[in-house]
Amino acid sequence: MKVILAEHAGACYGVQRALDMAVEASAEGEGASTLGPLIHNPQVVADLAERGVRAVSGPEDVERGSVIIRSHGVTPAVRRMVEERGLPLIDATCPHVARAQKAAAALARRCGRVVVVGEEGHPEVEGLVAHAREAGGEVAVVAGPADLPDGLEAPVGIVVQTTQTREALDAVVAALVARGIEPEVKNTICFATRQRQESAAALADAVDAIVVIGGRNSSNTTRLADICAAACPRTHHIEAPEEIEPAWFVDCGSVGVTAGASTPEDQIAAVVARLAML
């Protein structure tokens, strides 16, 4: 069976940057805490815990050591809590997420009403909402056109969770235009996300089966799995090579491999090695 790795797969710049910052903090010996899991990858979070970098719910749970803002970012209120406690702060917010936060605040100041295209309750989305509201905006989170609130009036600004698809953004914009509203759009979808989605779709269309590697709590990895499943019914979302079942690949001449933006290279290599043994 031929194993083919997607052209673009695995840890993006923002994730790798956050990991490097956390590992560097762990080497200082004072201990460090991340506000929530650094990235949505259980294996990485467990490895960091062994290095002395633990995930906590909030600043109130940190007694000593550095506080790391995870790649998804935090709300302005949480950042102030860290600063008020006088704890050393390491900001590992993905630069693309930070750009989206600034865009959300700017749209709130200009338009007064902001639509966030994204996953309700996701930590990145919670940060975008908080930045927009702190700037004085009314905010609605929508996954698609059906979630748009009734009575929405211009002017309206739109910002997007960095791991969303362009199709989701376009559908929301089209729905607003149909209502006679021309929104001000800030397309804050990360280019690396788009690359991974397009590579995964192309690969899924060309293989007999495909394996998607990444945390099940990772929205970008789950989205990759959905994209792959639309083109290849034999799509399998896993977190580790031990989950692979040989029966998945009976009569397969080729299997594709892709991975979410929160999946490090060593995890991808382990899965590829396991598949090569089948």
Rank of each mutant, 00 (worst) to 15 (best):
A230V: 04
T222E: 06
L224T: 03
A204S: 13
H236T: 00
I244W: 10
A204W: 05
R234P: 01
I189A: 08
I189P: 09
C190Y: 06
H237P: 06
E198R: 07
A200K: 03
S219N: 15
S219M: 06
T235N: 12
A229I: 02
I213T: 10
V207P: 09
V185H: 05
H236G: 08
E198Q: 07
N220F: 00
A225H: 08
L203H: 13
V207E: 12
R223C: 00
R223M: 07
V212C: 05
L224A: 01
A204H: 12
T193W: 11
L224N: 04
A229V: 02
E239P: 10
P246W: 07
L203P: 14
N187C: 04
A240D: 13
V211L: 10
E239T: 14
S218Y: 05
A202T: 13
E245Q: 14
R216L: 01
V212R: 11
L203N: 10
V212H: 08
G215D: 12
T193F: 07
A192N: 10
A240E: 14
L203M: 11
P233Q: 06
I244Y: 09
I213W: 05
F191C: 01
S218F: 00
I244T: 14
E243Y: 08
I238W: 11
I210W: 11
I238H: 09
R196C: 00
E242A: 13
N217M: 00
L203E: 13
Q197Y: 11
I210A: 13
A240C: 04
I244P: 10
I238S: 02
K186P: 00
A231I: 03
A200P: 02
V207N: 12
D208P: 02
H236L: 04
H236A: 08
D226A: 05
A229D: 04
I238R: 07
A202N: 05
R194Y: 02
V185Y: 05
I210K: 10
A209C: 06
A225P: 03
K186R: 14
I189E: 05
T235Q: 04
E198K: 04
T222P: 00
D226R: 09
A204L: 06
V212K: 09
A230C: 01
V185W: 05
P246C: 04
N217T: 00
T221F: 04
A229L: 12
T221A: 00
S199K: 02
C232A: 05
H236Y: 15
R216T: 01
A200T: 15
I210S: 12
R223F: 02
S199W: 01
G215W: 07
V211E: 12
E245C: 11
C232E: 11
A192V: 06
A206M: 09
E245G: 02
L203Y: 10
Q197H: 13
R234D: 07
